[in-house]
Simulated scan of single mutants.
Amino acid sequence: MTSKTSRTYDSADHVAAETHPGQLPWTFAYGTVGSNADVGDGRVLSAPARPCRWARR
């Protein structure tokens, strides 16, 4: 049995979503941070905070 992680990409080739077998997908939002135009729009602005399924409770 092979488990694979899948990824989807946005039009700028940023990872838009990543799904690991048996887990909910991670979704990412990108944009510009601050007013420095040299930085570009490739900064991760949001990503979900999810506990590992094997984390101690």
Rank of each mutant, 00 (worst) to 15 (best):
Gly31Ala: 04
Val15Asn: 00
His20Pro: 00
Thr19Asp: 08
Ala16Leu: 12
Arg56Trp: 04
Gly31Ser: 02
Thr19Ala: 07
Ala49Asn: 15
Ala55Trp: 02
Arg56Ile: 03
Gly42Ile: 12
Val15Phe: 01
Ser35Arg: 04
Thr27Glu: 03
Cys52Trp: 06
Val33Thr: 06
Thr8Glu: 14
Ala47His: 03
Pro21Lys: 02
Ser3Asp: 11
Arg7Thr: 08
Arg56Ser: 02
Leu45Ser: 03
Lys4Trp: 09
Thr27Lys: 03
Val39Ser: 07
Gly22Asp: 14
Ala47Glu: 07
Tyr30Ile: 02
Gly34Arg: 04
Trp26Pro: 00
His20Gly: 01
Cys52Asn: 07
Arg50Trp: 08
Arg43Glu: 13
Glu18Leu: 08
Val15Asp: 00
Leu45Glu: 07
His20Tyr: 14
Asp13Met: 05
Leu24Ala: 09
Arg53Tyr: 01
Met1Tyr: 07
Arg50Gln: 09
Gln23Pro: 00
Ala49His: 15
Ser46Gln: 15
Thr5Gln: 14
Thr2Asp: 10
Trp26Tyr: 13
Leu24His: 04
Arg50His: 04
Ala29Phe: 09
Val15Met: 02
Gly34Lys: 07
Val39Tyr: 12
His14Cys: 07
Ala47Pro: 00
Tyr30Phe: 10
Gly34Trp: 06
Gly40His: 04
Arg7Phe: 12
Ala55Glu: 07
Val39Asn: 13
Pro51Tyr: 14
Ser46Asn: 15
Trp26Leu: 15
Arg50Leu: 12
Asp41Phe: 04
Gln23Ser: 06
Val15Ser: 00
Ala37Asp: 10
Arg57Pro: 01
Ala16His: 05
Leu45Thr: 07
Thr27Asp: 01
Gly34Ile: 02
Phe28Val: 03
Asn36His: 06
Trp26Gln: 10
Met1Leu: 11
Thr5Tyr: 11
Thr5Arg: 15
Leu45Asp: 08
Pro48Asp: 15
Tyr30Val: 02
Ala47Gln: 05
His14Pro: 01
Arg43Asn: 13
Ala29Ser: 11
Ser6Arg: 11
Glu18Ile: 01
Ala16Phe: 09
Ala16Arg: 09
Gly22Asn: 09
Gly42Ser: 13
Thr27Trp: 02
Ser46Ile: 11
Arg57Lys: 10
Thr8Ile: 12
Asp13Tyr: 09
Ala12His: 13
Tyr9Ala: 08
Ser46Gly: 07
Tyr9Gln: 13
Leu45Tyr: 06
Asp38Gly: 01
Ser6Glu: 15
Gly34Val: 04
Gly40Gln: 05
Glu18Val: 00
Thr8Lys: 13
Gly42His: 13
Met1His: 09
Gln23Ala: 10
Arg50Cys: 00
